[in-house]
């Protein structure tokens, strides 16, 4: 835990670490869910923990949220040790899990008011805070309906609102958009961005590279309970070759002409694909590159069977980092059922 310059002789410290974990190990019966994970999140920053099911993300979250104890290692959240001062940690965090932990028989308002009272805010403040959060999360109209009647996205928002009741300095979000439809996911992202804009420190877990890319300052990729890469989204993408355009031609006679068109936008050599008629070009311009290529093909009379812009996915990241895809390792899934909630 870096306590910013409280000795006076450290000069200007770097940013205060709001979450810092060292050597976390957690074993379940015959599986090691975490095998020595280190994490650090500076104040006001967002760290994404990226990995497939069974990688140990939820286990890490549960340790940081004081729900389980690590077998080895230490973790300090907002200056409090998760082992020695669990209550202090709980005062400083808001947790929103992948299973929206709202009481379905209570209304949205009652859920939030209850959480406020359990934080010790008192009746008046709890009620006021509940109304304020319902307003902010676009749930005012539904606030007096039992949350059982809510859509998946609404429940998630209510759950997230619950994590914010006491305005904690650290937020821990476990797969906040898993299972949501694209529109609800977009809404959730907007909400999370606002929170970060307001200065919260955030640790989020996700299976989606896109999500980590959109929300996080820093990404830790984990697999089998271990960090396998760390960096910004751009750094990770550059490791995986970034985005690319994939083309399948109708006629392999057009191959040279197509390579020339692709060459104008490609960042490297245009590669052959699976067959003579398939080509792949790494690009950086996204959709602009794609329309440029399409225009070039149209001008040259090159017919294509299929063309698309491929963005690197978690699979690509995994493939390039580990040499294997994000397999659903049955051992690790079964073993982590105790901690991962897969």
């Amino acid at each position: 835990m870096a306590v910013a310059g409280n000795d006076g002789d450290e000069g200007v410290d770097e940013l205060t670490e709001m979450i810092s974990a060292t050597g976390l190990v957690k074993r379940y019966k015959n599986v090691e869910a975490l095998r020595g994970l280190d994490l650090s999140v500076p104040e006001g920053k967002v760290l994404a923990l990226l990995g497939p099911n069974g990688a140990g993300k939820t286990t890490a979250v549960r340790i940081l949220a004081t729900l389980i104890k690590p077998d080895e290692g230490t973790a300090v959240v907002a200056g409090r040790d998760v082992l020695n001062d669990a209550e202090g940690v709980r005062r400083s965090i808001g947790l929103s899990g992948q299973y929206a932990a709202v009481d379905e028989h209570l209304t949205g308002f009652e859920n939030l008011e209850m959480v406020g009272r359990l934080y010790g805010l008192g009746g008046v403040a709890s009620k006021a805070r509940a109304r304020e959060l319902l307003e902010r999360f676009d749930l005012s109209d539904a606030g007096d309906r039992p949350s059982k009647t809510y859509s998946g996205g609404m429940r998630r928002r209510l759950d997230l609102a619950g994590a914010l009741v006491a305005a904690p300095p650290v937020l821990i979000l476990d797969e906040p958009t898993t299972g949501l439809d694209p529109r609800s996911r977009q809404q959730m992202w907007e909400v999370i961005r606002e929170l970060v804009g307001a200065g919260s420190t955030l640790l989020l877990t996700t299976q989606y590279l896109e999500e980590a890319d959109k929300l996080a300052d820093d990404i830790v990729v984990i697999d089998h309970g271990r960090q396998i890469a760390r960096g910004t989204a751009d750094e990770l993408k550059s490791q995986t070759g970034g985005e690319r355009i994939e083309v399948v031609l109708v006629d392999d006679g057009d191959r040279d002409a197509a390579v020339a068109v692709l060459g104008q936008v490609a960042t490297g050599e245009v590669q052959s694909g699976d067959s003579e008629r398939a080509l792949t070009a790494a690009v950086t311009g996204g959709a602009d590159s794609l329309s440029q290529v399409l225009a070039g093909f149209a001008a040259g009379g090159i017919a294509v069977l299929d063309i698309g812009l491929r963005r690197p996915t978690l699979d690509d990241v995994f493939l390039s980092l580990t040499g294997h895809a994000t397999e659903s390792d049955t051992d690790s899934d079964a073993g982590s059922a105790g901690g991962e909630g897969a």
Binding site: A65, T66, L67, E87, R90, R91, I93, L95, G97, Y99, A100, A101, V102, D103, E104, V115, L118, Y119, G120, D159, G162
Partner: peptide, 17 residues
């Protein structure tokens, strides 16, 4: 089963409550 115990356990409330 519904995970609400997790919510309660992450709150600074009495463990007997």
């Amino acid at each position: 089963q519904k995970g609400i115990i997790d919510r309660f356990r992450s709150l600074p409330m009495s463990p007997a409550a």
